[in-house]
Structure formats: structure tokens, C-alpha cells
């Protein structure tokens, strides 16, 4: 089951410059493991492992079919063949 994942500029160092790569998995968590297998190092940029367990990094947005995964169960968000996944770094900052 292949799912196309769009990769933002800042993470293309892990994909050999590719803007989109194929990965697989029935959940976002499994998809990220599959991404990591082909593009070592990328997982750490997406997932933060805290005392409470792994979670999506605060300033990384991942969308499944245009929906923010935070509304779909985050790392447990279900995936099916043909889904479109987009990764975007947050655009954020400020004086504080």
C-alpha cells in the first residue's frame, strides 16, 4: 500500500532532494517508521519522545487529505491506500 508524502524544503536533505516520496503504513505512526526506513533521520524531525511517550513535534504540521492530523488522532491517525500526506513546518516565531 503506497501513500505519497509531500516533503517540505527543510526536510529534503533526508530524501535526497525529493519533493515527494512513497511510504506505507496503516497509521501515521507506521507511515513515519516506513519513511524513516528509507530516509534515515527524518523521524526525529517529526516526532518528539517525551516521558509521556512519542508525540508529533509541536511545530510540525502533518495533513492527511488536507486535514490536520491533530484532529484525526495524531500519530494514531488511520491511513488507507491513495491517501495524500503533506508535511509542513509551522511558520511561527516572535519576540518572546
Amino acid at each position: 500500500m503506497a501513500i505519497e508524502v509531500k516533503i517540505p524544503t527543510i526536510l529534503r536533505t533526508y530524501t535526497g532532494g525529493e519533493k515527494a516520496v512513497n511510504a506505507e503504513g496503516a497509521t501515521l505512526s507506521a507511515l513515519i517508521d516506513s519513511l524513516e526506513a528509507d530516509n534515515p533521520g527524518i523521524k526525529d524531525r517529526l516526532i518528539d519522545v517525551k516521558d509521556s511517550g512519542p508525540d508529533l513535534r509541536r511545530f510540525v504540521n502533518i495533513y492527511i487529505n488536507d486535514e490536520d492530523v491533530r484532529f484525526l488522532g495524531s500519530l494514531e491517525a488511520p491511513l488507507s491506500d491513495g491517501d495524500q500526506v503533506v508535511i509542513l513546518p509551522a511558520v511561527a516565531g516572535g519576540a518572546r
Binding site: 504540521n61 495533513y63 491533530r70 516565531g93
Partner: peptide
């Protein structure tokens, strides 16, 4: 602090 809304960002 500033941050784009995640839907706006997409």
C-alpha cells in the same frame, strides 16, 4: 508570538 493557523498554512 506569531503562528499561522494550520489550515491557512496548508
Amino acid at each position: 508570538f506569531y503562528e499561522y493557523d494550520s489550515t491557512d498554512l496548508l
